[in-house]
Design a protein around this nucleic acid. Structure first.
Length: 115
DNA sequence: AGCTTGACTTTGA
DNA sequence: GTCAAAGCCAAGC
């Protein structure tokens, strides 16, 4: 896909990127917003995730805030659902904080730059 | 129509 | 390192 496709809905862009996040990796809201060309609209990414929750093929649990904190866990079916999904992919979570966040972090822009 | 809220980030003190 | 403030914009009231 092309990042510069601005004719589509903002949410659809978010979905496409979130779907690209590899298993066992996570990214943050700002990185996604940045990839969409609107770095300051990171809040909208969160709002998009809220809507994405309905879609079954959007791994919303792989998106956390920039500190690696599971800020959106309460929006899942159960408050522990997000952590369970992450741990199921090999990501360690302690007190809503992703362990070794720097290691599992997957930068969206780096991916598109081919790095 | 306006006002508030929010799964956020950046910046400046 | 912390903290407060601003910017972002869709949805809900």
């Amino acid at each position: 896909m092309k990042i510069s496709e601005q004719h589509k809905d903002f949410f659809e862009h978010v979905y496409e990127i979130v779907r690209l996040i590899p298993e066992g990796r996570v990214t943050n809201y700002g990185s996604i917003a940045k990839a969409l060309g609107t770095p300051k609209s990171s809040r909208m990414v969160g709002w998009a995730m809220n809507a994405a929750h309905a879609k079954s093929d959007v791994p919303a649990h792989r998106v956390v805030n920039r500190n690696g904190l599971l800020t959106g866990k309460m929006h899942f079916s159960t408050p522990t659902r997000m952590q369970e999904l992450l741990e199921n992919e090999g990501i360690m979570v302690k007190n809503d904080q992703i362990q070794y966040f720097n290691t599992v972090y997957w930068d969206v822009t780096e991916h598109f730059l081919g790095k």
